[in-house]
Each structure stands twice: as structure tokens, then as C-alpha cells.
Amino acid sequence: MRLAVMKERRADEARVAATPETVKKLIALGNTVAVEAGAGLTAGIPDSAYAEAGAEIAPDAAAALSGAGIVLKVRAPLASGEEGPDELALIPRGALLIATMSADKDSVARLAAAGVDAAAMELLPRTTRAQSMDILSSQANLAGYRAVIEAASAFDKGFPMLMTAAGTIPAANVLVMGAGVAGLQAIATARRLGGRVSATDVRPAAKEEIKSLGASFVGYEDEESKAAQTSGGYAKAMSPEFLAKQAEVVAAAIAKMDIVVCTALVQGRRAPILVTEAMVASMKPGSVVVDIASDAGGNCALTKPGERVVTENGVIILGWRNWPARIPAAASSLYARNLLTFLTTFWDKDSSKPALPAEDDLVRGVMLTRGGQVVHPNFAAG
């Protein structure tokens, strides 16, 4: 089986879908691995490192994909009409494509028409069995870490309390909004840097998780908040009445904060607005809002996805896109291991190729297309 690792061409993407470590293990499964030249450079991995691991270095996408039965990517391949080469047209019919697809009905239909068997790893069910291949968790963890590091860089005072002969600099007051994987890592990182940290989340399990990391809990609690979590661990969309009461509590906290880190997402929907213009106006000059929900529209009303904004009252809002790609070496390492685990879990040693049983819950969760047909219920016609 020929396995191709492609160079990422989408804007703001610095990650790569395989590392020399995973290339060695993919070859040990019986694959020949072709890595497109330059695929790992933005993640600090030169072509020579892949070659030393046993990979063929292909000069371009067409050469890498020629005869490939498996294709690994970080983001969905470019299609006709998008800026750059038509990568989808270069993928052989019948090949298994494993990537973060960010799919909609049109893009899934194109994959089916191209005859590509596409696995969207962001749709992997969040079960115990799937933890080691869960790309959302691995990447969110690093996004939460990076958010706090960038907040510290943008903040014009010290993060920890600094006692000097000339006087004392107080510790930064940090509020983390959303205590999922990214939020919990943001809490832990802010605590390690010496900040005074508090956090908020509508999910009932979050309060104890927040406290277990040494942060204080901020939030409104009622009967609705006790059922604010899906069976998959995601936050549910809340009623306008609850959100209004939650906003009152959060607004009072935000006015006292130096740094606000926004991480709240609702699966399949636009990110909820949690920090209003009025809340930003209440913050001190030099305060920082970091919005890692920016790819989904942002949790802050003033976030401009992909940009750094300074408001009239001097608040800095960081709304960079694709936060995991801002720490590309580590993010690539974890992402590549997630894909390797997925492949090895379903690897048939006798045929030296993946066997993806349609009845398996993980396979059913990620497969968008198969044999030229749309198979995922979220995207099927009707």
C-alpha cells in the first residue's frame, strides 16, 4: 500500500499529518510512504528527516499521490475553484483520505463524485476507546496552552506577582471562559505562570474540574445548568433567559480582569457570544482578550477572526485563526499520532491495508463517503 503525506496549502496552516516517528511506524505496517517535498518545513521537519525515516520525498503533490491508496492530510484537500492546485482531482479513486474535513454537503458531494473514501477525524465519537485518536482533544489542549502564552506576551504587565525593591507588581487576574480541554489547559498554564485564575462554564461537571486545578468558579447555577451537557461531553445551547443571568455574573467578573481567554464552542454551531461590547468597554486599558473560538466566529463580540484588534479603550483582542497551528511542531506530533492510532486500530495484517467495518461505531462516526457514495447521515441527501 502506498501512503501519501501531503503538504498543506491552506492559509494559516503550519502543521503536517505525519512526522518521522509516525512514518517509521507506518512503514513497519507494510506501507511505502511518500512525503511531498516541503510538507514538514513549517513544523520544523526537513525533508531529510523524513528520508532518514524511510520515506520517499516526492517533488510535488501529483508525484506523492500517484498510486496512493491512503492519503494523510491536516486539512481537506483543495478542490476546483479554490486558490491553489486541485488536490482532490489528483487523489486516486478508491483511496482512503484521512484529514480534518470541516465538511458541508457540497464538499462531501465532491468527495463522493471523486470516488474518494473520506474519513473526517473531527467527527470521531468522544468515547473512551477513541481517546488516543481524538484530534479535537489533542489540538485543543495545545490551543489552550498557546492562548495563555500569547496573552502573556501581549499583556503589558507581569503575569505573576513580582516583588522588587522598587515595589510590587500584582499578579494578573485571568478569567477562562469554557472549561473543556482547551479551557482546562489554559487554566493550568495561567496558574503555572503565576496568575490569579478563575473560570466559567455552563456544564455541571466543569465546576469541580475548575476547582481541582486551583481556580475559582464564576457562574450562574440553576436547574437548566444541571443539564447543560450532551452525552458526548459538549456544551448544549442554553436558553436566552439562562444566558442573560449568566452574562450578569460574568460581566461583573470581567470588569476586574486583566486577561480573558475565550474557549467556548457548541458542536456544529457558531460560537456563542459571551463577551459583549459593553463587557470589553468595562475592562482596563492594556487588558487582553484571547479568543480561540475565532474560527467559529468568536466568543467576543469585537473579535475579528484572523486579526489583532485594539479597542478605543485600549483592550487588545487576539482573534487568530487556527490556534493549534501557532504551535506547529507539537501540534503536528500529536495529530500524526492520532492518525497513526486510527490506522493501526483498523489495520488488517494479512492484507496489509486498513479494514474499516461499516458497523463499527468509530468508523460510522468518521466516514463521510465510501465507494462513490455519501454514507454519513449528517450529509446524506434528503
Rank of each mutant, 00 (worst) to 15 (best):
E150K: 14
E150G: 04
A151R: 10
A154M: 13
A154N: 11
F155W: 12
D156Q: 15
K157G: 14
K157T: 15
K157I: 10
G158M: 15
F159T: 15
F159E: 06
F159D: 11
L162F: 12
A165P: 01
A166W: 09
A166S: 15
G167Q: 00
G167W: 04
T168M: 13
I169R: 08
I169E: 09
P170D: 04
P170K: 11
A171R: 12
A171Y: 09
A171I: 09
A172T: 15
A172Q: 08
N173K: 15
N173V: 07
N173I: 07
L175Q: 04
L175S: 03
L175G: 00
L175V: 14
V176C: 10
M177T: 07
G178F: 05
G178K: 04
G178E: 08
G178P: 00
G178I: 08
A182N: 06
G183S: 00
G183V: 03
G183Q: 00
G183H: 03
G183T: 02
A186R: 00
A186I: 04
A186P: 02
I187H: 01
I187D: 04
A188Q: 10
A188M: 09
A188G: 13
A188N: 12
T189N: 03
T189V: 05
T189W: 01
A190V: 05
A190Y: 02
A190T: 03
A190D: 06
R191M: 13
R192W: 09
R192Q: 14
R192I: 07
R192M: 09
R192D: 07
R192A: 11
R192C: 11
L193F: 14
G194E: 04
G195I: 04
G195Y: 10
G195Q: 05
G195D: 10
R196I: 13
V197T: 11
V197K: 07
V197L: 08
S198H: 14
A199L: 03
T200V: 13
T200F: 12
T200G: 10
T200Q: 08
D201C: 05
V202T: 14
R203A: 06
R203D: 06
R203W: 06
P204N: 08
P204V: 08
P204Y: 06
A206F: 03
K207C: 09
E208V: 12
E208M: 10
E209F: 04
I210F: 09
I210Q: 10
I210N: 08
I210G: 04
K211R: 15
K211C: 10
K211P: 02
L213Y: 12
A215C: 00
A215N: 03
S216L: 00
S216A: 10
S216R: 03
F217N: 03
F217A: 02
V218Y: 00
V218S: 00
G219Q: 05
G219F: 05
G219P: 04
G219K: 07
E221W: 10
E221I: 13
E221F: 08
